[in-house]
C-alpha cells in the first residue's frame, strides 16, 4: 500500500509531465485549472498518466460528474440543487466540496479540483 507521500509524488510527477509546470508549483493546495492552468484536453492526458503510474482504471464519470452538472433536475439557475450536491458527494467522496456548497455555481465546479483531491481519489482507488 502506497503512503500518502508516495501517492503525492507520483501525482506530482504526472502533473509536471502533463502540464509542463515546475515541481514546486504542484502543491497539495493548488487547483488544477486556476493554479496549474489545466485545460479540458489536459485532463485526458492526466487521467492517462495516473492510470499508468498507479496501474488503475479511472472511469471518466468518477472524476468529472458532467452528467450531474448538466442534469436539468439537479441544476437550477446555474446552481447545483441540494439534491445535486448530495449526488456529487456520493460520487466524489474524496473531494472537499465544503467551499463549493456555499455557492454551488456550475461554472465554478471546474476549478474545484485540487492536487490534494486528486491524491485522495487515487488513494481511494489503490486502497
Amino acid at each position: 500500500m502506497a503512503s500518502s507521500e508516495e501517492v503525492f509524488e507520483k501525482v506530482q510527477e504526472a502533473l509536471v509531465d502533463a502540464l509542463g509546470v515546475d515541481d514546486d508549483e504542484v502543491t497539495r493546495e493548488a487547483t488544477m485549472v486556476g493554479d496549474l492552468g489545466a485545460e479540458s484536453i489536459d485532463f485526458l492526458d492526466i487521467v492517462f498518466k495516473l492510470e499508468k503510474a498507479f496501474d488503475i482504471n479511472i472511469p471518466r464519470e468518477e472524476l468529472f460528474p458532467d452528467d450531474i452538472l448538466t442534469n436539468a433536475d439537479l441544476v437550477q439557475d446555474g446552481k447545483v440543487t441540494a439534491d445535486g450536491i448530495s449526488q456529487l458527494k456520493e460520487r466524489l467522496p474524496w473531494a472537499n466540496l465544503s467551499k463549493f456548497e456555499g455557492n454551488p455555481r456550475v461554472q465554478d465546479f471546474g476549478n474545484l479540483l485540487t492536487v490534494n483531491d486528486l491524491c485522495s481519489y487515487v488513494q481511494s482507488k489503490i486502497g
Binding site: S40, I41, L44, D45, F48, E51, R60
Partner: peptide, 9 residues
C-alpha cells in the same frame, strides 16, 4: 494508447 469519447493519446 488511449481513446475516449472526446479525445485520444
Amino acid at each position: 494508447v488511449n481513446r475516449q469519447a472526446d479525445g485520444a493519446i
